[in-house]
């Protein structure tokens, strides 16, 4: 009887092993819910943030003077969108870039459209500075999402080489 009980315990242990192995296999086989962290995407976002804010800084001057720089920047933002959209399971990051560049929204694309159409001679300093804060925050959110793919982090606690996000 004692031997039988021992064998029951052993059988339970074997079932356990199989359950653990099966669980690990099933979990590994599940498709990722989101793309993994990409250093390239992170670098792209931080670089474009710095460039975008530098171009926005020029917007108190005439649009035509800086039209070429704006066009080049928007092409690079488009490229960042295409890069994000090309990564599997990266829909939300791609949507972030789409929202940022959309001229009908009031972020980077919308800001340049406003400068070109509404105030081609240059916007007010106050408006520029307030818009810069908003555009910087949008970039920070792109960076924050990328960082969170690697490690759970609160966006308000993140730091970049330029300081707190």
């Amino acid at each position: 009887m004692k031997l039988f009980q021992k064998w029951i315990r052993v059988a339970k242990a074997v079932v356990w092993v199989l359950t653990l192995m099966l669980s690990a296999t099933v979990l590994s086989a599940c498709t990722s819910t989101i793309a993994g962290y990409s250093l390239e995407a992170y670098t792209l976002a931080t670089g474009l943030k710095a460039r975008s804010l530098a171009v926005v800084q020029l917007s108190t001057e005439s649009f035509s003077t800086h039209a070429e720089v704006v066009d080049q920047l928007l092409v690079d933002i488009d490229a960042a969108y295409e890069f994000a959209a090309g990564i599997p399971n990266n829909k939300i990051a791609a949507e972030q870039w789409a929202l940022l560049r959309d001229p009908s929204e009031a972020l980077l694309g919308g800001y340049f459209a406003f400068w070109e159409i509404e105030e081609p001679g240059g916007v007010s300093e106050y408006f520029r500075d307030q818009s810069k804060e908003i555009i910087a925050e949008a970039f920070n959110l792109i960076i924050c999402l990328e960082v969170n793919k690697q490690q759970a982090s609160s966006c308000s606690e993140l730091k970049t080489p330029e300081g707190v996000l």
Partner: peptide
């Protein structure tokens, strides 16, 4: 308003 949309999108991604 656009920024609020951006925050909502980011929260979903996070």
């Amino acid at each position: 308003v656009s920024l609020l949309k951006f925050h909502t999108l980011t929260e979903a991604g996070i």
